[in-house]
């Protein structure tokens, strides 16, 4: 990777639209929107709601399925001089396994990210990412089916994030990314109806940053594998917080919607920060929070 900055899955599509507004070749990596085995329609609108310092979304993993993705989106992503990470979700262990098998055969993929906070799965609707046992099983199933670097993306909607992190590490994850969105809700005080068609949705943006920094810090204490910090990052100093907490890379989500140049600004801003503080390498600040 040229640098430790990449988009968060689902906030950058396959990069097609943003490639018109910014220079994708400057990014550390490209991370695709979650793909599933079969196409998914996504959830009933409204799917968005802005809240204080953040937004709720209930997109529902709308995507055209892996076949369409590999045929139409991946070739576009591959053209850039940037590693491509494919993010997957399944309804069952078999689906994760099959997705990994299919992607493993594809030339030019740099890694697979497992989205294990998707709902309506086999185990009675409990997200894979909310149970250390299931998280371990799904990671093991993926690991068995791919040689590619395996990133496991954790949900913050759990009590003990370190336990989940240890479980996926022992099952063979090469890296951990966190956090996905926090489940939230917003209600229209005139109509008494929820502001999202799906009633609840995922909270992202600056509102979740302190939670994300805390979770990265906790996970960094308990596992040795690299961590990609995600959650409310909008500028270089936000990113620095994540590095200090122990992240080796960061991903930017919601901030892309506000300013498509956020990631390239962060890349330049990090360089300036390091020079200003007398460091030569980002590695010198990783995990260096003084507690």
């Amino acid at each position: 990777m040229k640098n430790p900055v990449m988009p968060a899955s689902g906030t950058f599509g396959a990069g097609r639209e943003y490639s018109e507004l910014m220079d994708i070749n400057r990014l550390g990596a490209l991370v695709a929107k979650t793909v599933t085995l079969k196409p998914r329609d996504g959830n009933i609108p409204p799917r968005l709601c802005e809240v204080s310092s953040g937004m709720l979304n209930s997109i529902g993993l709308q995507n055209e399925g892996i076949d369409h993705f590999l045929k139409h989106d991946f070739p576009f992503m591959k053209e850039f001089d940037v590693p491509v990470i494919i993010n997957i979700a399944g309804n069952s262990l078999e689906e994760y396994a099959q997705l990994c098998r299919e992607i493993d055969r594809v030339e030019g993929v740099s890694g697979i990210e497992l989205n294990i906070s998707c709902p309506n799965i086999k185990a009675g609707g409990i997200a894979f990412g909310a149970s250390s046992k299931l998280a371990e099983q799904v990671t093991a199933a993926a690991r068995y089916n791919t040689q590619l670097p395996l990133i496991v993306k954790l949900t913050p909607n759990v009590y003990n994030i370190s336990k989940i992190a240890r479980a996926v590490t022992s099952a063979g994850a090469d890296a951990i990314s966190l956090i996905n969105t926090m489940v939230g809700m917003s209600i229209d005080t005139n109509t008494f109806k929820p502001n999202l068609g799906n009633i609840t949705g995922g909270l992202s943006g600056p509102a979740i940053k302190p939670i994300a920094v805390r979770m990265v810090w906790e996970v960094a204490q308990s596992v040795k594998i690299p961590i990609i910090g995600i959650g409310g990052i909008s500028n270089a100093l936000d990113a620095v917080e994540f590095f200090l907490a122990g992240a080796t890379a960061v991903a930017v989500g919601t901030a892309n919607f506000i300013n498509p140049l956020t990631m390239t600004d962060i890349i330049s801003g990090l360089e300036a920060y390091l020079v200003d503080k007398g460091f030569t390498d980002i590695g010198q600040i990783i995990g260096k929070v003084k507690t």
Binding site: G10, I44, N57, N180
Partner: peptide, 14 residues
């Protein structure tokens, strides 16, 4: 905002 075939789901994953 009309209904469609997709079942309502809780989706924290976007």
């Amino acid at each position: 905002g009309c209904d469609n075939e997709a079942p309502p789901e809780t989706d924290s994953a976007g």
